[in-house]
Amino acid sequence: MRTAFKLAAGIAMSAIAAVSQAQIKPSVIYDMGGKFDRSFNQASYTGAEAFKQETGINYTDFEITNEGQREQVMLRFAQRGFSPIVVAGFQQAPIVEKVARQFPKVHFVLIDSVVDLPNVRSVVFKEHEGSFLVGALAAMKSKTEAVGFIGGMDIPLIRKFGCGYEQGAKYIDKDTKVFANMTGATPSAWNDPTKGGELAKAQFDNGVDVIFAAAGGTGVGVYQAAVDADKYAIGVDSNQNYLHPGHMLTSMVKRVDLITKKAFEDEMNGTFTSGLQVVGLKEGDISWALDEHNKDLLSKEDIKRVNDIRDAIIAGDIKVHNWEDTQSCVY
């Protein structure tokens, strides 16, 4: 009788242990812009959904709509024992720093910014490398020796994209003209397809024939303008090649989805690590998109040349200047 009880208790205990190991409570906090922005925030959502499908473990998420919510929501997630808390967006960094200090046992994953605490994993992308790569491809495909860049809101992160792009284009041919415009100075610049289209038309009129848009939802207008003018456009963050096959030269992909999914998996397997992760072409978390929608636009030589440049950047033979290092695009 006693052994039977012990046995039963043992089984029950191990069952509880198994459940508690499997039942992690992951969560995501999206930045303003919302989880369906087709770009940065949506990538975290995609990663979380992929994890949910593979493991059956549910997650909780929240879309920030005003500054007053940030601290409150993050605190509530931490208090309720959610871990890891994946926090997308550089504007959340100061709040992560505050909340993570109060909850040393909760794991945080901060994307696009750095907080140096023992329970925070900070993931920063080398967007300048990817932008360099698509800039080089743009210059290779340009017949007019003029390429364009359209940024969303004028902030350092976007200048970093623009600077990498310019370097890539000038790497192919240092006489390439690079036209750069920012859509605006307010967050609406992330979602202004009309203005994006107008800026694209203006650049096309100036002789540009390839435009890279790092502008969130504004990009949709840029791509449409490229279709109307029968020119090329380059997508950003997620693979946007499918939007206009034949006119989307490629997309500079930032694998926020992989980062989110990996964070959840690490928590589930008990292998969560904190610290700074700077990911780029080498890690495969930044890449250029080649799929059935754009393969007809590129010759074998083009593809080889872009991949060679990628390998050269990874090997360190090509140094790409990061705008954020000097706050300027002098290289």
Partner: peptide, 11 residues
């Protein structure tokens, strides 16, 4: 540049 993040000031 006076000690904050890229788009906000320090505390």
């Amino acid at each position: 540049p006076l000690g904050g993040n890229s788009t906000d000031s320090r505390y």
